[in-house]
Simulated scan of single mutants.
Amino acid sequence: MKHKDLIEQAAGLIRPYQTTSGRLFGDVAAVVISSTGNRYVGVCVDTPSWGLCAERSAMAAMITHGEYRLRKLVAVWRNDQTGQLHVLPPCGVCREFMRQVDEGNLDAEIVLDGERTKTLRELIPECEWPGPVA
């Protein structure tokens, strides 16, 4: 499996915690590799007012350290019922966040499973800023 180390690192971060209000934290985890090769991690935080996906959490850690450019990203979730681990593609909010942090992130590799990646550019349809109408 080509991306085994990244997937395993992310899987090691999964620590689901259910709050008294029924919200779930930490059931999705992400690892980002910056353009300089540093790794940053994060987990999801599901709140009623505003949730934070694991990908944005990991990117926030990267930004905290003064880095803005991604090389690679993976997010994972483990099914509590079956124990199976799943690689998750980033949601639309996370895709746009990555793009807005640095336009160069459009060329970052997004891990889709053990073997496949796509660039963020490939995952965002019509990602180029439009030209003028006339």
Rank of each mutant, 00 (worst) to 15 (best):
G66Q: 11
G66F: 14
Y68A: 03
R69I: 07
L70V: 06
L70A: 03
K72V: 09
K72W: 08
K72A: 12
K72L: 09
A75Q: 08
V76W: 05
V76A: 07
V76M: 06
W77I: 07
D80A: 15
D80Q: 15
Q81G: 09
Q81R: 15
G83I: 11
G83L: 09
Q84T: 15
L85D: 08
L85N: 07
H86L: 11
H86G: 04
H86M: 12
P89G: 10
P89L: 12
C91Q: 07
G92F: 14
V93S: 12
V93E: 10
C94E: 04
R95P: 02
E96Y: 12
F97N: 02
F97D: 05
M98D: 01
M98Y: 09
R99Y: 04
R99M: 02
V101G: 02
V101P: 00
D102C: 03
E103T: 11
G104Q: 08
N105R: 02
L106A: 06
L106W: 09
D107V: 07
D107P: 01
A108L: 06
A108Q: 01
E109A: 11
E109Q: 14
E109D: 14
I110K: 03
I110S: 02
V111H: 01
V111R: 00
D113R: 11
G114T: 13
R116V: 08
T117G: 01
T117C: 06
T117F: 05
T117E: 02
K118S: 13
K118T: 10
T119Y: 06
L120G: 00
L120M: 07
E122K: 10
E122T: 09
L123S: 00
I124D: 01
I124P: 00
I124N: 03
I124C: 04
P125S: 07
E126W: 13
C127M: 08
C127K: 07
C127W: 15
C127T: 13
C127Q: 11
E128H: 15
